[in-house]
Structures are given as C-alpha cells and as structure tokens.
Amino acid sequence: MKHRITLRIGPATFRMGSAWPGPIRSLERLYADYPAPADGIADFTVRLEPVSLLRRWLRPSIFITGDHGLADAAPMSLAHGLLAAEMGMNLQMALGWRRHLLLHASSVEKDGRVLVMTGESGSGKSTLAAQLGERGWRLMGDEFALLDLETGTVLPFPRLVSLKNRAIDVIVAEVPAARMGPLLAGTAKGDIRHLAPRADAVARMDEGAPPALLLFPRFGHAPAIRPVGQGETFMRLTQASTNYVALGEPGFAALTRFVTQVPALAMDFPSGEEAIAMVERLWEQQR
C-alpha cells in the first residue's frame, strides 16, 4: 500500500498500510518514541482502505481490515483516521493474538506489582489508568492486559490511550500537548483524543510484573468498595477476554491462577480525584 508504517507495541508488531497519508502521519508523530521492530517481520497486517473507489477522494471513507477483519465493520470518516488505525490494531489483537491470555482491561504498575482494572466502556478504567500514569504509576496499557500463560505475569501493551468525552479535558490539563493526538469530534463513541504514554512507560514496554489487585471500577456512583467472589470474577473475566475460548486449556489454567491469586474488588467512584485517592488507599492496604 502507498502509505505505511511498522509499529511494535509490547510483544506485538503491526504492519499498517493506508490509502491516505493522514493516518500514517498521526501514527508517526504519536509513536515516535517507540523502539523499532527488530527484524521487520510483523505479527499482523492492518489495512485502511477506501470503502469504494469513489470514497478514496470524495468524502473519503475508511474500511478497516487486515489479517483479521469484520465484514460488517462500519466505515469511518478519514477525519477519524487515527482512530481507525488504532481500531485496526485492536481488531488484530482481539481476534488473532494467542501468546497470552488477553484481558480487556487497563493496567498500571507500582513497586513491581500490577493493578488491573476491567469494566465496560465508560467505567472509567482508561481515564483512571491515564491519570495514575501521570502520578507515579507506570502505565502498562488502557485496552488489553496480557497475561502470561506460563508465569501469570502481566505484560504491558502500551498503545495510545483513547480518551473519550469528559475525560479529554481532565487529562489535557496535566499532560504536555506534544503527547496529545488531534481531537476527533463526533465519532461513534463521541469525542476522542489519544494520549501517548510517557517515554519511561514506553521504554519499559517489554517489562512485565505479577498482578497484585483486580478492580472493577464504576464511574458516577457514590464511593463504595465491595469484594467480588472468585466465581463472579472468573465469569466476568471470561467475558472480558477475547481469546479465552481460542486458547483452550492453557487459557483456563492461566485464568484460574489469576482468579485464585489476585484479590478482586468492585470500586464505585464519583470523580477522578476521589478514585485516585481510593486506589492509593487500597494499594497501601494490599502491601
């Protein structure tokens, strides 16, 4: 394809091709600090193609596909090209990654141990991870936590953090503009802006750590914390994993170990500041 870039994010390498220069330029800027892939062979190919010949030029419209794709994926406006590229990478991971158990969760690390946060879109897990990442924690990822099948270690997958709607202003206030992507207004999920992780988090993207705590955050409620039983945790994590079924027995073993070894708490919170204070308190109690 005419415009291309190869990116390595943690253990996965992506070869991205685009019919337009815009999405690739955005990626080049925001992924500038990421180390180059070792030998140029990518785990996945992502293609950003015009929906039809006409849509290359006239009201350009992107069809996201690649090694793995969804035939009925909704086309996206070229103005949202960076989001399309990120979704293309997510799609490959979600449908094709087999080397770790994939949890749809954000993760941050401190003192050599990992806090994993999972929940639906809108639960606040991305924003919370991004905020913690600016306050002494190492951001490991906002979308996927990779659970090693042999050791149970959580590995980072620190791609750009996708901030939505109200979360954008919260983060913009504390992060230099150079690490922020363009404002993508009016996407299917509202306004989106991407955040590049701090350079030190990127530099340590091959460094995993054992999980110490699992949180199910829920934004927009009075502060409350309740323990979540192992059975419920297990079921919720099978639903939060895109490759649990495909991995078969090793996936079951890895998830069982995670659930039996890592305490799980549901955490309701009314605001970001409150959430950070609650997380810091819980983290002290876990030591």
């Binding site: 390498t13 030998d39 062979i41 990518a42 080397r99 495909a246």
Partner: peptide, 21 residues
C-alpha cells in the same frame, strides 16, 4: 525461520489443532 516468524507459525499450528479438535 527468522525469530519473529517462529511464534506466528507456532500460533497457526495451535489454531489448526484446535480447529481439528
């Protein structure tokens, strides 16, 4: 095969085993 190709091919073999099962 090159180091980066090895896990890709190993994943494909595992997927094929699961398919057959």
């Amino acid at each position: 095969v090159p180091d980066a190709a090895r896990p890709i091919l190993a994943d494909a073999r595992l997927d094929a085993e699961r398919e057959a099962r």
